[in-house]
């Protein structure tokens, strides 16, 4: 109930200004490719943020988060593919030739990922701990192999998109425009999530992480709250997937490979689990390191490893927790 710590506000505001100023700075420096790096960071941050909701607050260690990204991306890819080829989408009632409109593609990507999260979550959440990790991983790998063996949508090679999603009056093909759209979505998600984790729902979710048996003994049916959080996380990760498809203008099964789930997890650990903003710090650190180190050596993970160990050992609340200082407590 104390006044909000100032240091945290300074850190958040600095981060916000850097993210806002990035495109003009990149143009001024004559390095416009930085915008696409920054876009990757923002999208990865959105994915890590969605993982933080269930992992950092609900204590659910999902190791299959890339599945939701993959679904979001494939929804965009498949709709765009049929739109360009003017062919019918199979297995759907009615005759539909897909769509290139973001206002169709993105909500459907969110819905599809949420539905997958709801169905698999209902099964995964019957387990906990290490079993939960394994079952979420298993579902993601099933999905990965499903798309690998789906020749209609390119199998291993995936789908190349002709263009980014269409938004009336907004030209997403301009990298800086697309960047600001992604940034807006990330900021909106951050704002909503920081309300959610402190709401009644959020308190129950945090209670699940701290002592789920106690919550049940108080009369709260914990399962439905965990499933709701899992579904919400899946939905937002699906949105991140839809943005990823637009960013790379390519959709392939590698998007949902288990190593992608691992990357999201590493980003979150780096940035700080259970801090929300740490997802942004982690995604930025991870992808910036990748960008810098891959120019030196292809074995860049060799350097990431020790950094991760260092963070885990010495900064329990990750880079963000270290930046805002120990006073911040929980948000």
């Amino acid at each position: 109930m104390s006044a909000p710590p100032r240091r945290k506000q300074v850190v958040n505001l600095t981060g916000l200004l850097v993210l806002l100023a990035l495109p003009p700075a990149a143009f001024a420096l004559g390095e416009p490719f930085l915008i696409s790096v920054a876009t990757r960071i923002v999208i990865a941050a959105l994915a890590a943020l969605s993982l933080d909701l269930i992992l950092g607050f609900g204590g659910m260690v999902s190791f299959g988060h890339a599945a939701f990204l993959g679904i979001g991306a494939y929804v965009v890819g498949i709709l765009a593919h049929h739109d360009v080829e003017s062919t019918l989408i199979p297995f759907l009632p009615g005759a539909w030739h897909g769509s290139a409109a973001a206002l169709v593609q993105w909500p459907l990507a969110v819905l599809a990922a949420a539905l997958f999260a709801l169905l698999t979550g209902a099964l995964c959440l019957r387990t906990s701990g290490v079993y939960f990790i394994m079952v979420t991983l298993a579902f993601a790998q099933m999905l990965y192999h499903f798309f690998v063996s789906l020749p209609a949508y390119g199998g291993h090679d995936g789908i190349n998109l002709w263009q980014r999603s269409m938004v009336p009056g907004v030209d997403l093909s301009k990298d800086w425009v697309f960047y600001y759209v992604c940034l807006f979505i990330l900021l909106a998600a951050l704002a909503v999530f920081s309300r959610i984790v402190n709401s009644r729902f959020g308190m129950v979710l945090q209670g699940c992480k701290q002592n789920e048996a106690r919550l049940a003994a108080l009369g709260i049916a914990t399962g439905r709250y965990k499933l709701a959080a899992y579904t919400l996380a899946g939905a937002i990760a699906g949105l991140a997937g839809a943005l990823t498809a637009n960013q790379t203008e390519f959709v392939g099964p590698s998007l949902m490979h288990w190593s992608r789930s691992g990357e999201i997890l590493v980003m979150l650990i780096l940035g700080g689990i259970g801090t929300l903003y740490g997802a942004v710090a982690g995604a930025a650190t991870f992808l910036a390191l990748e960008e810098i180190l891959t120019s030196l050596t292809e074995h860049w993970m060799l350097f990431l490893g020790p950094i991760l160990v260092f963070v885990v050992l010495f900064a329990r609340r990750g880079i963000y927790g270290w930046l805002v200082g120990p006073e911040s407590g929980d948000d």
């Binding site: 109930m1 709401s199 009369g219 709260i220």
Partner: peptide, 15 residues
Amino acid sequence: QARQGHSFRFLAPAR
């Protein structure tokens, strides 16, 4: 909160 019924309330700060 447990006594008051469901906790599907997402925005108002519980504290």
